[in-house]
Simulated assay, not measured.
Amino acid sequence: MYFEHSTDVWAEFPELVAGVLSAGGVDASASVADRVKPYYDIAADRLGTGSESELPEIQAWRRVFSRMGLKPTQYRCASESLLRRFRKERSLPEIHPLIDICNAISVAFAIPIAVFDTDQVAGHIQVRHALGDETYETFAGQIEHPEPREVVFADASNQAHARRWTNRQARTSAARSTTSSVLIVAEALHPSAAADVPRLIEAVSGELAAIWGAHATTAVLTESSPRFEI
């Protein structure tokens, strides 16, 4: 199993920095309430009295969505959506301990993080332009087909595990009570992404070790080295 971005995606978005991590041994029984707070504090400090739209990480993703022909205030990257909710409530809902800690790290860095249950992925995940015949399952159980040329996370069975790049993940491979092995992906395109993404991946790896005693394999992908073997 492997993860990669297509050559077309790299050619179109050469400023992309992608951090990836794979690990096993996670479960849904851990408590992370005390571990999310430091990241919430960072997010609150970064937001101050302003808006998440002022952060360079979010501005970069808004520009990308505009380049993809999407209205950035209608379709937001996952970290912007989380920050909007966090700004109003100063917390995020509890979903699954791994999702909860990744969401907390995501708002601290303002960078979208995707978590995939690798047991629910066929063969590989490639971030590529959709053909339009891929199958995407919403969290409500509805089946959708991405628009042609939309950027999706697609596997070998033509399942789309995320739509509109970092906008929305699928139910198909979302973390659940039985999840043990995961692939975690963080992507950014802002000016300091080359420094920030490795720090984010290091933070996630550290939390996996502290909470679950899990050993993670990590990498930062580039156009010349785009593939991560899981």
Rank of each mutant, 00 (worst) to 15 (best):
I113S: 10
V32R: 06
S177V: 13
G24H: 10
G213K: 03
R63D: 01
Q59G: 05
D27R: 03
R90H: 14
D155A: 01
E150N: 10
S51D: 03
V220L: 14
R176C: 13
P146I: 05
R164I: 15
A195H: 12
Y40P: 04
G24N: 11
N103F: 04
I99D: 04
R171Q: 10
R163I: 11
P38E: 15
L55A: 06
S79I: 09
A60G: 06
D133R: 07
Q59N: 05
T135L: 08
R227D: 13
A130P: 00
A18V: 13
L16Y: 04
V36Y: 02
A110Y: 03
G213D: 06
A114Q: 10
L92W: 09
K37I: 15
L221K: 02
G123M: 07
W212S: 05
D155Q: 01
S224H: 12
S81H: 01
K88M: 11
I101A: 00
S6V: 09
I58K: 00
L70M: 10
E94N: 15
W10D: 01
P112E: 02
H124L: 07
T49H: 12
V182L: 05
R171E: 14
P38S: 15
N103H: 04
C102V: 08
L221E: 02
A130V: 03
W212G: 07
Q169W: 11
E137W: 10
S51W: 02
I211H: 04
F228N: 00
I143R: 13
H215F: 15
A11G: 04
K71P: 01
E147D: 15
D117R: 12
L98W: 01
A186Y: 08
R163K: 11
H124W: 07
G132K: 05
L98D: 00
V204K: 00
V127A: 03
E15M: 14
A194W: 08
G206D: 13
R227G: 07
P112I: 05
R90Q: 10
P226C: 11
V9I: 10
W10N: 08
E94S: 14
I95H: 08
F116E: 01
D45H: 11
V32S: 04
R168C: 08
S177H: 12
T172G: 02
V17L: 14
E207F: 03
E223L: 09
A43W: 05
N158A: 07
A60V: 04
W165S: 03
Y2R: 03
A219Y: 04
T217M: 08
R176E: 14
V17N: 11
H161C: 05
Y39G: 07
I125P: 00
Y136T: 03
R85K: 12
I211F: 06
Y40L: 13
